[in-house]
Design a protein around this nucleic acid. Sequence first.
RNA 1: GCCGAAGUAGCUCAGUUGGCUAGAGCAGGCGUUUCAUACGCGCCGGGUCGGGGGUUCGAUUCCCUCCUUCGGCACCA
Length: 704
Amino acid sequence: MRRLLVTSALPYANGHIHLGHLVEYTQTDIFVRYSRMTGRRAIYICADDTHGTSIMMRARKEGRSEVEVIEEMSAAHQRDFAGFQIHFDHYGSTNSPTNQVLCNQIWASLRGAGMVSRREVTQLFDPKEGVFLADRFVKGTCPRCGAADQYGDSCDKCGSTYSPTDLVDPKSTLSGAKPELRSAPHLFVSIESEHAFLTGYTQSEGRMPREIANYLAGHFLSEPLRDWDVSRAAPYFGFEIPDEPGHYWYVWFDAPTGYIAATQEWCEKQGEGLDAWWRSEDTDIIHVIGKDIVYFHTLFWPTMLKTAQFSLPARVQVHGFLTVNGEKMAKSKGTFIMASTYLKHLDPAYLRYYYASKLGPKVEDIDLNIEEFVQRVNAELVNKIVNLASRSSRFVQKTGLSAAYPEDGGLFAAGATAGDEIGAAYAAFDFARAIRTIVALADRANEFIDKAQPWALAKQPGKEAEVQAACSIALNLYRQIALYLAPVLPKLAEESGKLLNCAMDRWELAKEHLVGTPVAPYQHLMKRAELESAQKMVNETSAANAPETTEAQSAAASPAAPASPGAPATPATPATPATPTTYDDDGAALQEEPLAPECTIDDFGKADLRVARIVAAEGVEGAKKLLRLRVSLGGGVERNVFAGIKAYYKPEDLIGRLVIICANLAPRQMKFGLSEGMVLAAGGKDTAFLLSPDSGAKPGMRVH
RNA sequence: GCCGAAGUAGCUCAGUUGGCUAGAGCAGGCGUUUCAUACGCGCCGGGUCGGGGGUUCGAUUCCCUCCUUCGGCACCA
């Protein structure tokens, strides 16, 4: 049988593992465990992703070295994974000597193939803001058709595309200043030469979920592939590029190489050769990733592998995000639940089972609904499955199982047949189907016991053989089920093996009767999940609101969860209910958006900031992010202002509220109307917090 | 608005090479057992299969269109 090398995305070393991450690791772990049970040689490789600016900033803030930071986090990650019975054959780090050697090697191959270019990148630079401007931050007149007010990359009037430097009369959309041309050295990897290869690779049947292949075909492969900027200038925590001193590989360059490096470290421990795993026709490599990092795994990574003559992944399995109670995970709602928090309150088996019952082969978000979670685990796992063992094992403790398997009306045979279907479902990452089929088997087993009534027979003298027969059947059916669930619930399988004195490690065992073996005294195999405990977990998460809020999702290779840390759930609620005794004001926000160049008091004075009252607010039809606000400056002076805060505030909650606006901002014609000012709000990519004056302020007052 | 995915019972979902009265689990109601972790078993109620149109002897399934939801992109002065 072909060997399997399976990976999950590398968790970023700047945040703890949360329930969103666990979707992916659980999914992968189940797949690997199943594969092993069928006799396939399979290894599960992972590592921490450690490089990048975030780690550097964190280390500085905490006054210690980056290495100390990432070692601590790696230990925490591995502790969490172990707590959820996620078993890696090797867990490495991208900051390893092995990985560095490998990066050098792949880099040399790319160089050798003539795919690397060093370019003085001339970009438009905003002299007022002190930043380089991405295409979308530049507007000007289209060089083709002369349409005004077009973006730096393409014209929506004539549809032509061009470079921002071609724009006539360009303006920075940040400051309105005329951008200057400035250059900086960058290293690029060109992948356009591999366009045909990538089309063939990504579109080949079974390589990845269909919708992902379509997405790539439509968004990237339909036009020339752009060069990939792989360098970052010092200071940067990472590997210095050997032939380009002062420049470091961008974290996404050395993250996927970590898959290979970690494999190599495992090989060294095992005395095996790396080539058998990464340069072999006999090994299938499968990457399990989240839908947010498809781009890196399906375009750049295959190109790197091909160029350096490594095997190409046979499959890239993509999963969706985790939502909690139907919404994106948010600290403020108590749904940004850390793995370690969960473990304090609930059995990891519950989550493994629940995820398995929800995970299909499609790229769909899955929802963790706390109530459904408790209900489902209890109803299916405890009430009908585990209870099977509990209700039938006691009657045969003294006698053990029948020496010959009794007539059962074909139940066992049906269960054995179902095993093929269940196995196929596991192999296809359709765990939900596997679970459905398994639960159906448990239903049949319960019906059987109910009809056989061993408890009634046990009271009638002379019926001992019948009691034994009924329970032998029930326990054989239970064993089948426990075997089928073993990839999901390894611990349950192990305990069941102790109860029935049998092996539980091979899939094919489900086709063999278990006869004549002793039965151990029954001990609880699993407790019922308590809603109260789940509630406590949520409450504890809410209470711990501040720590790790912003750090959790800047991950380069972050897998499962959506990135919306700390989105304001109820903006109307005062932000500080009590005086906090400690603060966790980390540098994440500042790091994400560095300070602008110094300005003078006169510069500042140019902006006329005023208190204003929102007198009307409504969503803008056709716009997903915009609210149209009517604000009053008092004395009947009103303004029409658009604000990109639809996702964070309900219009009705805003009416009557005092805010700060920039009142002398040049009016701007937008797609949906004229905007006559700007409402001030703090926030980053996924958040917005409106500014309000203290009570007493009146509309029209100037902010000095 | 553009691209993608999806809309089946109160909830979570099965079900399509087009075909018998559209299914399961949970939740709800009724009954029943008491071996088991108040668990199990039986029965019942409940769906215009998002709306409309078309192809067909026949459409939940194929085609068109509209609506809604969720992602991604745009808009966020």
